[in-house]
C-alpha cells in the first residue's frame, strides 16, 4: 500500500488541469512507473496525486494531412514500439521505445512521463531531440508548444508549469522525411536497464548519397540533461562520407559532451562510449539513409 495522502483520478485533461490548479502540492501520475517508486522510497511519501492514467484523449499516434506526427503523451512504450505509423516514419523512435525496461514496463510506461521526468537517461529523449520534437503543453492558460531544446532546464527539471499536462509530442515532416536514423542504448544488461549512455543519430544524405546533407547527433547521460552536438552537426554539413568522417564526428562529440563520473560509470568510460557509439550510430544512420558507410 502506497503512502498517498490524496488521490484524484481525472476524467479529462481539462479536469486534470483544474485539479492541479486547485492543489498546489499535487503531482501528476500517468503510468506510475516512476512516481509510485518514489512514493515507496519515501521521497514522495504522503503526496497528493492527480492521475491522468488511462485518459483516452492522451492515447494514440496519428499523422496529420501535412505529414506531422502527433504522439499523444499517454501512449505506452509498447504501443509506440509497435505503431505502424511510427515504424514507417520514425523507426528510430519506435526502436528506442522498445529498449525501455522490459515488456511489462513498456506496457505501463508512457512517453510523456519519460519526457516530463526530465532525466537524462530517458530512452526516448535523445531520439526526440534528434527529431526536433515539439512538446504540446496544456494548462490553465491554454495550450503552448515548446521545442524540445527549450524544455529541459536541469536534471529532473523542465519548463512544464505546475498546472500543465504534456498532451502531445509533435514531429514535423521535415524533421523525419529523408533521414536515416539509429538509436543505440548502452546498458550493463540487455533488458531492465537504465542507459549508461544513449545515442541517437540522424543523417540526411546529399542527392548523390556521397555526403552528409545534415547530421543530428543527440545523447542521453552525456550531460545532466539530454543534449545535441550542434557544433559537430554544423561542422560536418556537406562533408563527404570518408573513413575520417566518423573520426571527426566522434571527436566533435567528445568536445561537446559533458558526462559526469558517478558510481554507475566514470566520466572516462562514458567518453569512450560517446566516441564509439557516435561512430556506430552514425555509420548505421548513413546506411539507413541509403548510403554506404564503408567507403
Amino acid at each position: 500500500m502506497y503512502d498517498i495522502e490524496k488521490f484524484y483520478q481525472a476524467r479529462s485533461v481539462a479536469d486534470a488541469v483544474r485539479a492541479l490548479r486547485a492543489d498546489e502540492r499535487a503531482i501528476v501520475i500517468a503510468g506510475g512507473s516512476d512516481v509510485l517508486i518514489e512514493i515507496r522510497d519515501g521521497k514522495l511519501a504522503g503526496c497528493s496525486l492527480v492521475s491522468i492514467h488511462g485518459l483516452a484523449e492522451l492515447e494514440g499516434v496519428e499523422r496529420t494531412a501535412e505529414g506531422e506526427i502527433v504522439i499523444r503523451a499517454g501512449t505506452s512504450f509498447s504501443r509506440i514500439a509497435n505503431d505502424p505509423i511510427l515504424l514507417r516514419t520514425v523507426p528510430m523512435l519506435a526502436y528506442a521505445a522498445d529498449q525501455v525496461g522490459g515488456p511489462q514496463i513498456r506496457n505501463i510506461g508512457t512517453i510523456g512521463g519519460n519526457v516530463c521526468n526530465g532525466v537524462t537517461s530517458a530512452d526516448s529523449a535523445s531520439s526526440l531531440w534528434a527529431l526536433n520534437a515539439t512538446l504540446e503543453l496544456t494548462g490553465g492558460e491554454g495550450t503552448r508548444l515548446v521545442p524540445i531544446r527549450e524544455f529541459y532546464t536541469g536534471p529532473g527539471k523542465t519548463v512544464r508549469r505546475h498546472d500543465e499536462i504534456l498532451t502531445a509530442i509533435r514531429i514535423a515532416r521535415a524533421d523525419y522525411e529523408g533521414f536515416g536514423g539509429c538509436y543505440l542504448k548502452y546498458g550493463k544488461r540487455n533488458a531492465m536497464e537504465i542507459a549508461t549512455l544513449g545515442c541517437a543519430a540522424m543523417v540526411r544524405l546529399t542527392p548523390d548519397q556521397k555526403a552528409i546533407a545534415e547530421l543530428r547527433l543527440a545523447y542521453g547521460v552525456a550531460a545532466p540533461t539530454p543534449m545535441r552536438c550542434t557544433a559537430t552537426e554544423e561542422a560536418v554539413r556537406g562533408a563527404a562520407i570518408t573513413p575520417e568522417l566518423l573520426d571527426r564526428i566522434a571527436q566533435g562529440a567528445l568536445n561537446e559532451v559533458k558526462p559526469r563520473s558517478s558510481w554507475r560509470a566514470s566520466r572516462e568510460f562514458r567518453l569512450q562510449l560517446v566516441s564509439e557509439m557516435s561512430r556506430r550510430a552514425v555509420r548505421q544512420a548513413i546506411v539507413n539513409a541509403g548510403g554506404e558507410a564503408d567507403v
Binding site: 502506497y2 483520478q9 501520475i29 492521475s51 492514467h53 506496457n107 505501463i108
Partner: peptide, 13 residues
C-alpha cells in the same frame, strides 16, 4: 490481455 506488473499499478486504474 496485456502483461502488467501489478505492484506498480494502482487498483483504481
Amino acid at each position: 490481455g496485456e502483461a502488467f506488473d501489478t505492484c506498480i499499478y494502482l487498483s483504481l486504474w
